[in-house]
């Protein structure tokens, strides 16, 4: 359950940036290959925010779809797994461009 440590990271970041104000909403950007499961993050969020400035805040999760760059043909394509081959030329490996992010995008404070 490393989602709990991830949510604790979110709480820390928010408390650093919210200037002591109550946080109403948080938006995260979570890549589809990041290994973090949105449902599990939501599940941990309430417990992890209790007694913090984030208590009761809304959690908004924006999914970032994975894309990969093909160094053979130069095309960027959507990626579903770490081992997709290039759909445009069949090259066996793609370099991930997006999909691994775990970011706090923004906050809404009182």
């Amino acid at each position: 359950m490393h989602e709990l440590s991830i949510v604790q990271g979110v709480v820390e970041l928010c408390e650093q940036h919210c200037g002591g104000r109550r946080v109403l909403a948080v938006t995260l950007e979570i890549g589809s290959l990041s290994g973090a499961v949105p449902e599990a993050l939501e599940f941990c969020f309430e417990a992890a925010t209790k007694g913090t400035l984030l208590e009761g805040a809304e959690l908004e999760i924006e999914r970032v779809e994975a894309t990969g760059y093909c160094s053979d043909c130069g095309v960027v394509s959507p990626v579903e797994t770490y081992f997709d081959s290039c759909p445009s030329c069949g090259a066996p490996a793609l370099l991930l461009r997006t999909g691994e992010e775990m970011r706090v995008k923004d906050l809404e404070v009182e």
Partner: peptide, 21 residues
């Protein structure tokens, strides 16, 4: 949720990796 139901809050852009620490 959409945010229409809220009193307008102040938005703060963070764009920071959660694992930054």
């Amino acid at each position: 949720h959409d945010h229409d139901g809220h009193l307008p809050g102040t938005r703060i852009t963070i764009e920071t990796d959660i694992l930054a620490k």
